[in-house]
Computed example of a mutant assay.
Amino acid sequence: MKIQDRTFIVTGGASGLGLATAKELHKNGGYISIMDMNSEAGETLVKELGTEKAKFFEVDVTKTESIQTAVNETAQWTKSTGIELGGVITAAGVGFPGKIIDRHNEPLAMESIDFVLNINLRGTLDTIRLALPHMTQVTPTHPDGERGIIVMVASSAAFDGQPGQVAYAASKGAVASMTLPLTRDIAQYGIRAVTIAPSLFESNMTKLLSNKVRKSLERVMEFPVRAGKAEEFAALVRHCIENSMLNGTVLRLDGGMRMPSKL
């Protein structure tokens, strides 16, 4: 599927991996619906990209009505531009680490678990289900009858999470495991589903890591021995969109890294 002259929803599109993705798709001719909580960063990005091909919507992905409003307004925008919806990239996510039982024999607060699950998992599902009724009505432009793509974001923690990542790994593992059934649900409409599972990437979350933790992680890296760059993630999103044979799969983007059990 071509990126040019298609509209793409990017949640978490004002920072980190989502920001890099929004810029990459825009650079390749896409129109970008940026959905994020950070209105200042979102409006700054729209000014950078230009108001013709970018719109910002302040969205809390834990609230259905917030997503619904932004999706509906995005759909109205596509009608005014004539640039139909081509895909959804669900890059909104949080880490918020915490062991399931702490040194004082206290269980992890359910509020902390809900916070992670509601953003990483519920927010992903809710965004997809609300966008799909619009995507199924898109005019197929590909000889195969392709209408669009869903690109979800999991994590290497879905496969080898570290201590303190129970809630995070649960949320990202769920995203990874729902990739194939989602693919099967939407195949009849000519819509694909792919998940990318990055390891340690430079982002707002990884900026909080101490030098000790970062060095410990570098010891288990294969090649290259560094955190991934947001632009490398965005390049894979672009390839997922453009390569119609990528469907129903989880792509690890980790340089061969496997997370250690202890830091």
Rank of each mutant, 00 (worst) to 15 (best):
K2Y: 04
S15A: 15
G18K: 11
T21N: 01
T21W: 02
G30M: 00
G30S: 01
I32K: 03
K47E: 14
L49Y: 06
A54L: 00
D60E: 14
A70M: 09
V71M: 01
V71E: 03
N72K: 05
T78S: 01
I83H: 12
L85C: 10
G86E: 12
G87R: 14
A92E: 10
R103N: 12
E106K: 13
E111V: 08
F115Q: 14
N120T: 12
N120E: 09
L121T: 12
G123S: 11
M135Y: 10
V138L: 02
T139G: 01
D144C: 00
A154E: 11
S155K: 07
A157H: 06
G161Y: 08
Q162T: 10
Q162F: 07
Q162D: 04
G164N: 11
Q165L: 09
Y168T: 09
A170T: 13
M178P: 00
I186G: 00
Q188S: 01
F201E: 05
E202T: 12
N204E: 15
L209C: 05
S210G: 10
S210F: 06
R214W: 10
F223K: 13
R226Y: 11
G228T: 03
F233Y: 15
E242H: 08
N243P: 03
G248P: 03
G248Y: 07
G248A: 09
R258T: 15
